[in-house]
Design a protein around this nucleic acid. Structure first.
Ligand SMILES: [Zn+2]
Ligand SMILES: [Zn+2]
Ligand SMILES: [Zn+2]
Ligand SMILES: [Zn+2]
Lengths: 130, 130
DNA sequence: TGACATAATGCAAATCTTTGCGTCTGCAAT
DNA sequence: ATTGCAGACGCAAAGATTTGCATTATGTCA
């Protein structure tokens, strides 16, 4: 797998950003790359994102933004709770989720690849307001 | 919230199908409704699905089909493991997941609304083949 | 270096999905 | 029954994403 110039630029986009909060949609990535690659074709970005997801460099998730978001895969896994009312995003340490994944692996002989879980609900503040 | 004719037809689509395996994309639903509603506009279907998801009649998930799938919300929650290689779908009883959700609710005061979790990985058979 | 195989890209068309806006329909108060 | 309102719908345009195919770039091997 050759590391294309576009892939490198996408990685650069994420670099320097805090891993847990840098969630970009394909469009956002496309628009952020426009200045450096004025002539780049959207399909090139979409294909690069697909490749990078497949090879585990980035992850793809639905965080309720209406479009899938991509995130760099770091050393430490993390997950999120997203409030459907105020859209607040809470980050969960992997310790919260690992026991479940381990148990599923054990029970079903299933090797988990999901590495960024996003769970929806209502945060304490929004629950009180109702 | 009035129950529109389109909503009723969508519910009919799911009725009679086993809850845990009837996962349809918006397109599939649109095409299945075509015979009964030859003149229906795609946007009407998309909007109905959005309403029904918001009101909790159906759920929306990514099951790796390339497009979101909708499923009727039944009495009993369930979840899935999806093999990324052979696309096999394993159904999990809610008992497997409920403890995690309960713990998150307790710990963060968060009321979970996610009711159909889909986790990706590699099934035992595909792991052996590698 | 030169030829070849493979991967990446551009481009255009096809799809899929969303959105704005005007119209239509069902329900309820009068 | 008539009116008024809100929700549902059609339609067309915009926007987002995917796909097929031709072209270009890169790495490998002789
Ligand atoms: Zn994250
Ligand atoms: Zn909230
Ligand atoms: Zn299901
Ligand atoms: Zn498999």
């Amino acid at each position: 797998m050759r590391t294309s110039s576009v892939e490198q630029l996408i990685l650069d986009l994420f670099a320097g950003q805090p891993v847990e909060t840098a969630h970009f949609t394909a469009q956002e990535i496309y628009l952020q790359l426009k200045p450096q690659l004025p002539a780049v074709n959207p399909s090139t970005i979409y294909r690069a994102l697909e490749r990078m997801t497949r090879s585990g460099k980035i992850s793809i998730s639905d965080m309720g933004k209406g479009a899938a978001v991509f995130e760099i895969v770091g050393k430490e896994r993390h997950h999120h709770l997203v409030c459907e009312t105020c859209h607040q995003v809470i980050t969960l340490s992997d310790d919260t989720i690992r026991p479940l994944f381990d148990e599923l692996s054990r029970q079903f002989g299933f090797e988990m690849t999901t590495n960024h879980l996003v769970l929806f609900g209502h945060c304490p503040a929004c629950r009180r307001k109702k």
